[in-house]
Amino acid sequence: EVTIKANLIFANGSTQTAEFKGTFEKATSEAYAYADTLKKDNGEYTVDVADKGYTLNAKFAG
């Protein structure tokens, strides 16, 4: 089991951190699915991958 950390950075400057656990593939998929649920209210996002894929920095356009 691994933990994927998602740093969510919103256009207004606020941030949120979420963690997803499971296999690498499952946890990564859940992190992206969570970011997708936030698109409606926060706009499209881009992701910078860090820490060999164990940290995802998602920046929302607003």
Score class of each variant (00 low, 15 high):
residue 37 T to Y: 12
residue 6 A to M: 15
residue 36 D to S: 05
residue 27 A to K: 00
residue 26 K to F: 11
residue 37 T to S: 15
residue 41 D to R: 10
residue 38 L to D: 01
residue 31 A to H: 03
residue 35 A to C: 15
residue 51 D to R: 00
residue 43 G to D: 02
residue 25 E to W: 07
residue 54 Y to R: 08
residue 27 A to Y: 00
residue 39 K to W: 04
residue 3 T to A: 06
residue 20 F to Y: 06
residue 19 E to C: 15
residue 58 A to W: 14
residue 14 S to G: 09
residue 29 S to T: 11
residue 30 E to V: 04
residue 14 S to F: 13
residue 60 F to R: 00
residue 3 T to H: 06
residue 34 Y to V: 03
residue 22 G to Q: 00
residue 3 T to N: 06
residue 57 N to F: 09
residue 28 T to F: 09
residue 16 Q to R: 13
residue 33 A to P: 02
residue 59 K to I: 14
residue 18 A to E: 10
residue 17 T to H: 12
residue 15 T to S: 11
residue 3 T to G: 03
residue 22 G to L: 00
residue 3 T to D: 02
residue 47 V to F: 06
residue 12 N to R: 04
residue 43 G to R: 01
residue 52 K to E: 15
residue 39 K to N: 02
residue 16 Q to I: 15
residue 30 E to L: 13
residue 56 L to F: 09
residue 18 A to S: 08
residue 50 A to M: 13
residue 3 T to M: 08
residue 17 T to F: 10
residue 45 Y to W: 05
residue 10 F to P: 01
residue 10 F to I: 03
residue 9 I to C: 12
residue 56 L to Y: 00
residue 26 K to E: 13
residue 14 S to V: 14
residue 16 Q to K: 11
residue 60 F to E: 04
residue 45 Y to F: 09
residue 42 N to M: 13
residue 54 Y to C: 10
residue 33 A to H: 09
residue 60 F to A: 02
residue 54 Y to G: 05
residue 56 L to R: 02
residue 20 F to N: 01
residue 4 I to W: 00
residue 11 A to L: 08
residue 53 G to N: 04
residue 2 V to A: 07
residue 44 E to F: 09
residue 12 N to G: 07
residue 13 G to I: 02
residue 36 D to H: 07
residue 34 Y to W: 15
residue 27 A to Q: 01
residue 25 E to M: 09
residue 38 L to Y: 15
residue 56 L to K: 04
residue 56 L to P: 04
residue 23 T to Q: 08
residue 58 A to Q: 05
residue 27 A to T: 02
residue 53 G to L: 00
residue 10 F to T: 04
residue 62 G to A: 07
residue 20 F to E: 03
residue 60 F to N: 03
residue 54 Y to Q: 06
residue 32 Y to S: 03
residue 57 N to Y: 11
residue 60 F to G: 01
residue 48 D to E: 15
residue 27 A to S: 06
residue 14 S to R: 13
residue 55 T to N: 04
residue 19 E to G: 04
residue 43 G to A: 02
residue 15 T to R: 13
residue 29 S to P: 02
residue 45 Y to N: 01
residue 38 L to H: 13
residue 10 F to L: 10
residue 1 E to M: 14
residue 12 N to E: 05
residue 14 S to W: 12
residue 36 D to I: 01
residue 33 A to R: 11
residue 52 K to R: 12
residue 43 G to Y: 01
residue 30 E to Y: 06
residue 50 A to D: 10
residue 35 A to G: 02
residue 29 S to H: 11
residue 43 G to W: 03
residue 27 A to D: 01
residue 5 K to T: 15
residue 12 N to V: 03
residue 1 E to L: 14
residue 44 E to Q: 10
residue 31 A to D: 02
residue 18 A to N: 07
residue 23 T to F: 06
residue 56 L to I: 15
residue 1 E to H: 12
residue 19 E to N: 08
residue 30 E to M: 13
residue 62 G to M: 06
residue 36 D to T: 04
residue 31 A to V: 08
residue 35 A to F: 15
residue 9 I to M: 11
residue 17 T to P: 04
residue 61 A to V: 13
residue 39 K to A: 12
residue 38 L to I: 05
residue 16 Q to Y: 12
residue 27 A to M: 02
residue 8 L to M: 13
residue 23 T to E: 08
residue 42 N to W: 15
residue 12 N to T: 07
residue 56 L to Q: 03
residue 16 Q to T: 11
residue 20 F to V: 03
residue 4 I to F: 00
residue 43 G to L: 03
residue 38 L to N: 05
residue 9 I to D: 04
residue 60 F to V: 01
residue 43 G to E: 03
residue 46 T to Y: 10
residue 6 A to H: 01
residue 12 N to I: 04
residue 25 E to R: 07
residue 30 E to R: 08
residue 5 K to C: 10
residue 5 K to I: 14
residue 5 K to M: 10
residue 24 F to S: 03
residue 20 F to W: 05
residue 6 A to D: 03
residue 40 K to M: 11
residue 12 N to K: 04
residue 41 D to F: 12
residue 10 F to R: 02
residue 51 D to V: 00
residue 25 E to H: 09
residue 23 T to Y: 07
residue 46 T to V: 12
residue 58 A to F: 15
residue 29 S to C: 15
residue 10 F to A: 03
residue 53 G to D: 06
residue 32 Y to F: 11
residue 29 S to Y: 12
residue 49 V to Y: 09
residue 8 L to F: 15
residue 37 T to D: 10
residue 34 Y to A: 03
residue 25 E to F: 07
residue 56 L to D: 04
residue 58 A to M: 15
residue 6 A to T: 10
residue 54 Y to S: 05
residue 6 A to C: 15
residue 35 A to P: 01
residue 46 T to A: 08
residue 55 T to A: 04
residue 32 Y to H: 06
residue 40 K to T: 11
residue 1 E to G: 08
residue 38 L to F: 15
residue 43 G to F: 01
residue 2 V to N: 03
residue 19 E to W: 15
residue 61 A to M: 14
residue 47 V to I: 14
residue 25 E to T: 09
residue 43 G to H: 01
residue 45 Y to K: 01
residue 21 K to R: 13
residue 8 L to Y: 15
residue 30 E to C: 12
residue 24 F to I: 08
residue 28 T to C: 12
residue 14 S to K: 13
residue 59 K to L: 11
residue 25 E to K: 08
residue 13 G to A: 05
residue 25 E to D: 11
residue 34 Y to L: 08
residue 55 T to I: 09
residue 10 F to D: 01
residue 36 D to P: 00
residue 2 V to E: 05
residue 23 T to K: 07
residue 40 K to G: 11
residue 10 F to Q: 04
residue 48 D to L: 11
residue 19 E to A: 08
residue 58 A to I: 15
residue 26 K to A: 13
residue 38 L to T: 01
residue 43 G to P: 01
residue 20 F to P: 02
residue 61 A to S: 14
residue 27 A to H: 01
residue 48 D to F: 11
residue 45 Y to S: 01
residue 20 F to M: 01
residue 24 F to E: 04
